[in-house]
Amino acid sequence: MANSGLQLLGFALALLGWIATLVATIMPQWQMSSYAGDSIITAQAIYRGLWMECVWQSTWQIQCKVYDSVLALSCE
């Protein structure tokens, strides 16, 4: 009985690990940087991921661009 409980716990942890891996791969927050000009009105946050690059502005606008090719990734 204890053996099946451990197997069930192992399966649940493995499933949770797979879900966390998928979420981390899809999200664009792999590299984050920010820029603030002379005032907070011009503040920007830049998020780069494996699939897209997003720019968040202090006016609550988000613009995302999906990469055309894996070869188009920057080496910064």
Rank of each mutant, 00 (worst) to 15 (best):
T25M: 12
T25D: 14
I26R: 04
I26H: 04
I26A: 14
I26T: 06
I26E: 10
M27W: 11
M27T: 15
M27E: 11
M27G: 06
M27H: 12
M27S: 09
P28G: 01
P28D: 02
Q29P: 08
Q29N: 14
Q29M: 11
Q29S: 13
W30G: 08
W30Q: 09
W30D: 15
W30S: 09
W30F: 13
W30I: 11
Q31R: 09
Q31M: 10
Q31G: 10
Q31N: 11
Q31W: 13
S33T: 14
S34T: 15
S34V: 05
S34C: 13
S34P: 03
Y35H: 10
Y35K: 07
Y35S: 08
Y35Q: 07
A36L: 07
A36M: 07
G37Q: 04
D38Y: 13
D38W: 15
D38L: 15
S39N: 10
S39W: 03
S39G: 12
S39H: 07
I40N: 04
I40C: 03
I40W: 13
I40T: 09
I41D: 15
I41W: 10
I41L: 15
T42F: 10
T42R: 11
T42N: 14
T42W: 10
T42K: 15
A43D: 08
A43N: 06
Q44F: 02
Q44I: 01
Q44L: 03
A45N: 08
A45S: 11
A45G: 13
A45E: 13
A45L: 14
I46S: 09
I46P: 01
Y47D: 13
Y47T: 09
Y47P: 05
Y47A: 11
Y47V: 10
R48P: 01
R48W: 02
R48N: 07
R48C: 04
R48A: 07
R48T: 11
G49H: 06
G49T: 07
G49L: 09
G49W: 05
L50V: 05
L50Q: 12
L50Y: 05
L50G: 05
L50C: 03
L50D: 06
W51V: 01
W51L: 10
M52F: 09
M52R: 09
M52H: 05
E53P: 01
E53M: 02
E53Q: 08
E53K: 09
C54Q: 00
C54T: 00
C54M: 03
V55L: 09
V55I: 12
V55P: 00
Q57D: 14
Q57L: 08
S58I: 05
S58G: 14
S58F: 14
S58M: 15
S58P: 04
T59L: 05
T59N: 15
T59H: 09
W60G: 02
Q61H: 08
Q61G: 03
Q61A: 14
I62N: 02
I62K: 03
I62F: 01
Q63N: 15
Q63P: 04
C64W: 00
K65H: 05
K65M: 02
K65Q: 06
K65E: 01
